[in-house]
């Protein structure tokens, strides 16, 4: 009974954490204040109090963005683990997050001397460009090499390019003056404090669209679990599938990362949680991971805001500190064979 209703229970918890997320923070709000704020927002009432403004301009976009970012990272994890048929893959392992971080570091250190500016969009655009550049580099380098197993090759190239961009970030941190260096560090640990409605719309659009596309390839990803040869015998065009999954992942992860920085661990562990609970059929895996990813990141964000309130912890620290032991516990408790 509980197993059948897991998804419903997860949805209820997600709604709960969403409500908690908009109530708590530097300023506490009562349920009535939250409700009146939401009512005014929905009805378009312009007679807003300070609390209404905080709710509509800060809390709501942040809570919604958190759901989308969590979903993006978790689905990216499902796609990459499925594509590489490897359980230890994070969506960033093919260069995406290190490229994004490099772009962001460039902005923090040299941003003042840039000749083109896009206001609040400058940082996300540069981070996104960095992510696309590094991932594209990984793909081109591994695809033009015809030696050996191309999947392993793609992975190893990703590791190499990751190190290259990480040392680039190291070099920029070395050049940076203190506040810039701190910005780099903070960005690399992730934060949702920059959330606004533009980010919500863009990340939400990318998340929903990519999940819809990914679902079309769920069956093919299942077949791929038997290995590339067996997938071929089941009628899957593996090369084609690889490119499509790769592209979906790049869009998902780079758009999300561009707005919130690097948030580790969500993409790695959420797919495993869902596999432990629901098995590995990619149709349930993709949808389950999207919801669970959003839920867990919301929990992490609430903790990040409350643990050292009124100061705020970088969310990447929370996801890792909470995620790692829970994950190890689940691995040991359940029969989860690899």
């Amino acid at each position: 009974m509980i197993r059948k209703n897991q998804f419903l229970i997860l949805l209820i918890f997600t709604v709960l954490i969403f409500l908690i997320s908009i109530r708590f923070g530097a300023v506490q709000m009562s349920t009535e204040q939250v409700l009146s704020g939401i009512t005014k927002w929905v009805t378009g009432d312009t007679n807003l109090t300070l609390y209404d403004r905080i709710l509509i301009d800060i809390r709501l976009p942040r809570a919604i963005l958190t759901l989308f970012v969590g979903a993006s990272l978790a689905v990216g994890g499902v796609l990459m683990q499925g594509l590489f048929i490897n359980p230890i893959i994070e969506p960033g392992l093919i260069g995406t997050s290190s490229g994004a971080a490099f772009g962001a570091s460039l902005y923090f250190v040299l941003g003042a001397s840039f000749s083109i500016h896009f206001g609040e969009w400058t940082l996300p655009i540069i981070a996104c460009l960095g992510a696309v550049l590094s991932t594209f580099l990984v793909f081109i380098l591994s695809e033009t090499n015809r030696k050996g197993n191309s999947t392993t090759h793609l992975l190893l190239t990703g590791i190499a390019i990751n190190s290259l961009f990480l040392s680039g970030i190291g070099f920029l941190s070395y050049l940076a003056r203190d506040p810039q260096a701190r910005s780099i560090t903070f960005w690399s640990l992730g934060s949702l404090s920059g959330a606004n409605w533009h980010a919500v719309i863009l990340v939400g659009f990318s998340t929903l669209l990519c999940i819809l596309f990914a679902l079309r390839y769920a069956k093919q990803l299942n077949a791929l679990m038997l290995g590339t040869t067996e997938a071929f015998h089941l009628g899957v065009n593996v090369k084609n599938l690889k490119i499509k999954i790769f592209l979906i992942n790049v869009v998902l992860v780079s758009v999300a990362t561009a707005f919130v920085g690097i948030i580790g661990f969500v993409g790695l562990i959420v797919p495993h949680f869902v596999r432990i609970l629901k098995g590995s059929d990619h149709r349930t895996l993709l949808i389950g991971s999207a919801v669970l990813g959003g839920f867990l990141l919301s929990v992490a964000d609430v903790l990040a805001r409350l643990l050292l309130a009124p100061a705020e912890l970088p969310i990447g620290i929370v996801t890792t500190v909470v995620g790692a032991p829970v994950f190890v516990y689940l691995l040991r408790k359940n029969q989860y064979n690899f």
Binding site: N222, E230, H233, L234, G235, G279
Partner: peptide, 25 residues
């Protein structure tokens, strides 16, 4: 269809789900 000597499954899945893959085409 091709039956090979060595098959591995990358992730845990139910037996019925694995057999159903044969009907994916």
């Amino acid at each position: 269809a091709v039956l090979s000597q060595h098959n591995v499954l990358g992730f845990p899945m139910k037996v019925s789900e694995v057999v159903l893959m044969g009907r994916y085409p």
